[in-house]
């Protein structure tokens, strides 16, 4: 059984155990140089909620981890939303362009440049448009709605339930792309750099899955709780 991250765990050990937490530290604004401090101490000195840190880290790293009701209620809403916004920005500014450039490099250098490479590029462009509009909707509509509840501005006719119903799965097309590249890439030319691209896709798929899990199992129940105590009429 996985041992979850606890307030008294030493952060340096946690990183050693699972380097995927590095991205989480960056998004939470936790500075390096934390010596041998525990999670609790690091959070306090970086002004990050210990509860938020533990929920995000454990849910992102351990798929079977689910938050308990009490910890959901005490979440700092704005900080959680900011974390999700920063993740979106990272995807949009770094990860998606990285993958796009790698696909372009392979397509341009390949001898089938005039036949199939445009098919791959078109597939990715279409997917990219979907991703961007997915993030834009959350940044532009869902997150402002949540801020509105906290500020006491209640929009009738909308609730987080509607978001949950329409929350589309953004990672499945990455799976398609991985399979196409690994299993069906039509080139007779071997492409060692193709494996680097597939590795990038695995990392991104993992990030998207963890991100969606936070939105569905942390953000949505937390906002449902806020709606209840603020009397939002669905």
């Amino acid at each position: 059984m996985a041992s979850y991250i606890l307030p008294e765990s030493k952060l340096a050990w946690v990183v050693e155990e699972n380097y995927k937490i590095l991205r989480i530290l960056k998004r939470l604004g936790i500075m390096p140089g934390f010596g041998d401090k525990s999670i609790k101490e690091v959070c306090i000195s970086n002004k990050v909620s210990v509860n938020l840190f533990l929920l995000i880290a454990n849910m992102s790293l351990y798929k079977e981890f689910s938050p308990d009701l009490e910890s959901l209620k005490e979440l700092p809403t704005i900080d959680l939303v900011n974390y999700l916004r920063r993740s979106h920005r990272e995807f949009i500014i770094n990860d998606i362009p990285n993958v796009e450039n790698a696909i372009r490099d392979i397509a341009v250098n390949d001898d089938f440049a005039n036949t199939h490479s445009s098919v791959f590029l078109d597939f990715f462009e279409e997917y990219k448009t979907e991703l961007l509009s997915h993030f834009e909707y959350e940044d532009g509509s869902v997150f402002p709605y949540i801020n509105g509840i906290i500020e006491g501005k209640i929009r009738s006719g909308y609730s987080i339930e509607k978001f949950e119903e329409n929350h589309t799965n953004i990672e499945s097309k990455i799976g398609d792309l991985k399979n196409i590249l690994l299993k069906y890439f039509p080139s007779k030319n071997p492409h060692p750099e193709l494996y680097d691209l597939v590795e990038k896709l695995y990392i991104l798929q993992n990030e998207f899955e963890a991100h969606a899990y936070l939105e569905d199992k942390l953000l949505v129940p937390h906002v449902e709780y806020l709606e209840r105590i603020n009397g939002v009429v669905k």
Binding site: H116, V119, F123, K173, G175, D176, I180, K183
Partner: peptide
């Protein structure tokens, strides 16, 4: 095939 989306299947059909 390991491909679920319609656009992914279209890519598969094109390259084959």
């Amino acid at each position: 095939t390991g491909i679920k989306s319609i656009s992914g299947l279209t890519v598969y059909a094109l390259i084959n």
